[in-house]
Write a protein that binds this DNA or RNA. Structure first.
Lengths: 357, 357
DNA sequence: TACAAAATTGCATACGTATGCAAGATATGA
DNA sequence: TCATATCTTGCATACGTATGCAATTTTGTA
């Protein structure tokens, strides 16, 4: 309630006065490529240092119409895959001199107010890593000229760019791998029904099994949630026809399923039951689990995401792109092995059967 | 390169014209508590809706000198404790109508450029959850009037507010617990040497053991890093005097240590070796690990953090506060149990020995 | 040395919003 | 009904920076 007390906020005008130059000169000193002589530049820098000046990004944004802020929407971070992505995004965007405005910790259905908030900050781009985008919101971004990238998901319509890995192929590989390992009965613990990853992975899996004449797959639903996955595992394992192998739609759930199988049902893995997962996330690599899993190459996916954004921001043109990065089946100890197709790459065992691809 | 093409950015003036009122009226419509009649307010809202208007938070910040942005600095997210904190922060700050500008994915020693960046956005507050603050940076925040909270760490000097849990007491509790469990030889796998959490936890632990006449503790260093923790565990377990119990400075490392003990040394836990950790983070609760651990109450810690910030922002006065929230030793299966002191609370086993506290 | 070309500088203005102030409109009370 | 108090409203200005333009200085060339 005091108004004009000095709040330590040094302005370019103050620096200008202190250096005996115009405000323009100060601005040009901090604008790469602007026309400024080394002499005055030095004077300005000295004055800036003396006063502790930092350019005000807010004021700059107002006039340049560029905030250098990217909104990242990630409803939940429980699955370590997403923090890993976030960290890599932070790194890559910082390298481009962009910053991350993070929206997390909300229920998925409450994404509209979130969207409202991020639009108010005139972000230069939006990365959606957990929420789908309703098509009218996408349209609004389109007319507002804000590039949007769906990360690890796609929508049927061509409303926004997307970056995914080859989920269909990954599912197929896992199917081949399990059939090759001699399993005869199969289960699938699904992720969110309306997510593209879940659909694609399952479709590929089913396709592979069908190719070997297997059409019967027991299905449970975990919705990419630990507890629901545990419940689904209990139901599946206590049923009359326990499958010999289970594909769990991601590692986050697979870990939970494995604990249930081992400690609630006393099953040896992979002797009594094979489990495979997806994402190749941290815990999957830990010795206790050692989950055979399809890797989603975070670095490549993030790189593609930032690529698309930088491209669209620079050109001003928003034409949706869809990047699909390759992935690989990493072989560990949670599933019985096929006789052929396993090769060693960079010290890791990888499944690369002949004649697929 | 085109300049004035319509970029879909609707301004308050455009809304004003469309509604037949002044720009001031539009501003007042979107400013809670401003003087505006219901009639014109309705007109404005209608026009705003028709044009798809959203107030420009950037321009607003420029004049109000409030960005409603909180900078969160978290160098790495590998330890699930931090994503959990982040999610809760997102939730709590959103409730206060603040937003999170996240800085992550950088090396700890590169924090100065990070600091530079966040100061440019005139953030209303700073939460440091992974980096320590050099005292001159703290001073700069002080003079700039920006509140800073150190999360899960403190510094010796009183340079910034802090929120921690009772790390010293937690360490002591773990010591008592292990001694009560009949262990006679002890190891400690340390976190970062210069972190307050590491110092406090170890000091409490050592104090408890000393009270029982035990001064000899084998010490290895994991630096809160998985791989270093594994190496430290290997060294400690292959030494001539393998300890009966190991306190690992956080769960993130404890999980790794446990895998090494079980699968590289074939030790049964807790029969051959007891392990206790700290944080009570996700994986600690998974059946495969079941780590006996001191909980750090994320919700309470985040609440305290946001409290401090809101308080200081509202008052404009920055007097450093230090909040210490209570914690509890959660008993699971990774360590042998003492005969007394274990009680059940909300379906969880908790260690509450008599006569400590 | 003289002159053209290039580089540098300051002036003035714009970005989109909030807000003090005075004028106008409406409500209140007798 | 009128005088007074309370709301509303629009005008003008400010926030801190970037940038087109014209004026000025420096550089290059003959």
């Amino acid at each position: 309630m005091d108004g004009g007390v000095k709040r330590g906020a040094v302005t370019s005008s103050q620096v200008a006065e202190h250096a005996g130059v115009s405000q323009s000169a100060v601005s040009r000193t901090f604008t790469p490529g602007a026309s400024i002589s080394p002499k005055t530049r030095a004077k300005v820098l000295a004055a800036a240092k003396a006063l502790g000046y930092r350019p005000n990004a807010i004021a700059r944004s107002l006039i340049t119409n560029r905030s250098r802020i990217i909104a990242v929407v990630m409803a939940y971070l429980e699955n370590l895959f997403y923090p890993d992505v976030l960290e890599e995004l932070g790194r890559r965007l910082a390298a481009e001199n962009y910053h991350v405005l993070l929206f997390t910790g909300f229920k998925d259905r409450d994404s509209d107010p979130v969207f409202d908030q991020l639009m108010q900050y005139r972000v230069d781009g939006i990365i959606l890593a957990s929420t789908s985008l309703s098509s009218d919101l996408a349209e609004e971004c389109e007319t507002a000229g804000i590039p949007v990238v769906l990360f690890n998901r796609t929508t049927g319509k061509d409303v926004a760019s997307s970056v995914t890995s080859r989920n269909h192929e990954g599912g197929r590989l896992l199917g081949e791998f399990l059939v090759g390992g001699g399993h005869r009965t199969f289960g699938y613990i699904a992720g969110l029904a309306n997510s593209s990853t879940n659909r694609d992975r399952f479709a590929g899996f089913r396709e592979a099994l069908a190719r070997h004449g297997i059409d019967d797959i027991q299905v449970g639903t975990g919705n990419y949630n630990r507890q629901e996955a545990e419940a689904a595992a209990r139901a599946m394992l206590s049923g009359p026809n326990r499958p010999e192998a289970i594909f769990v739609a991601n590692d986050h759930m697979a870990v939970a399923v494995m604990d249930v199988a081992r400690y609630e049902f006393g099953l040896a893995i992979p002797a009594d039951l094979s489990i495979v997962g997806y994402d190749d996330v941290g815990p999957a690599r830990w010795t206790s689990y050692g989950i055979t899993s399809v890797t989603q190459p975070i670095s490549a996916m993030v790189e593609a995401t930032v690529d698309i954004l930088m491209d669209q921001i620079a050109s001003g043109e928003i034409e949706t792109q869809h990047r699909v990065v390759p992935s690989e089946l990493i072989v560990r100890t949670s599933a019985r092995l096929p006789k052929t197709g396993i090769v060693e790459v960079d010290g890791q065992l990888v499944y690369r059967p002949e004649g697929l691809k």
